[in-house]
């Protein structure tokens, strides 16, 4: 059984089929890159998996738990982490406060234990020296790494990343990508939405190309990116038609 199973997922916004029947499996330990034009439904798909949006039809099962299973909402939450384009750090909390909040309040850990985990995570994303700083004092790349650490601290089985480098200056894109590459090598299961094809190539095992709310193409990264089968993907990738 795959870690994530999606069947016939549909989502409609104001008469517009944003997701028009998505079938997708993601295995544990896999990194899937999600690419596609603006408005193709990438964020919508991620938000449905992350439980921020509700689907109008179909099924999403994570680790054997169906999304919408009210009785297991908490179990599901524990398994899915999400990182946003705009970081969404809590501005009134320090870096450490951001990372320890859920450990303490949701997982019920003692302060010392939570701090230890937070420190390890911040170490992993290379920003342990900023534990006491507030988000406003950090660069975009640093903030995004804190956001990743905040998510990782809860040890999600599945990490969803929506264009996490799109709001960053070029020199900071690399530092965040390096962290993600490290996580991929560690076997963290990730779905990452990205516009950077080179990064998708380097970090993912498979690529899914979303087109008008459907999966237009999916397969091993090299195959999909080097020999696109559809005209839409060829055009998206800038191939000569």
């Amino acid at each position: 059984m795959a870690l994530l199973e999606i069947q016939a997922l549909r989502r409609r916004i104001g008469g517009n089929e944003v997701l028009a029947g998505i079938d997708l499996d993601v295995e544990a330990g896999e990194v899937l890159a999600l690419i596609g034009r603006s408005g193709s439904g990438k964020s919508s798909l991620l938000r449905c998996i992350g439980g921020l949006d509700t689907a109008d039809g179909g099924r999403i099962v994570v680790d054997g738990i169906g999304i919408g299973d009210a009785a297991r909402k908490r179990d599901l939450r524990e398994r899915i982490g999400m990182v946003f384009q705009s970081f969404n750090l809590f501005p009134h909390l320090s870096v450490e406060g951001n990372v320890t909040l859920a450990l303490r309040k949701v997982r019920g850990m003692a302060k010392a234990e939570a701090r230890e985990i937070a420190h390890a995570m911040l170490e992993k994303v290379g920003i342990a020296d900023k534990a006491g700083a507030y988000p406003r004092a950090l660069s975009g790349g640093q903030m995004q790494r804190v956001a990743i650490a905040r998510s990782l601290a809860l040890q999600p089985r599945l990490l969803l990343l929506d264009e996490v480098t799109s709001a960053l200056d070029p020199e900071m894109v690399r530092e965040v990508q390096n962290v993600l590459t490290l996580l991929a090598a560690e076997g963290v299961t990730m779905i990452l939405v990205t516009h950077e094809i080179d990064f998708a190539r380097a970090a993912s095992r498979r690529v899914a190309f979303l087109h008008k709310g459907r999966i237009g193409e999916i397969g091993p990264t090299k195959q999909v990116l080097d020999t696109p089968a559809t005209a839409e993907l060829r055009e998206f990738l800038g191939f000569r038609l």
Binding site: G50, G51, L52, R74, R77, E78, I80, G81, M82, F84, S86, N88, L89, F90, L101, A102, K105, V106, R150, S151, L154
Partner: peptide, 15 residues
């Protein structure tokens, strides 16, 4: 987005 960040971390409505 602050609500959403708190939601994905698993905080309850009250929290």
């Amino acid at each position: 987005t602050q609500w959403e960040a708190a939601e994905v971390l698993g905080l309850s409505h009250f929290q």
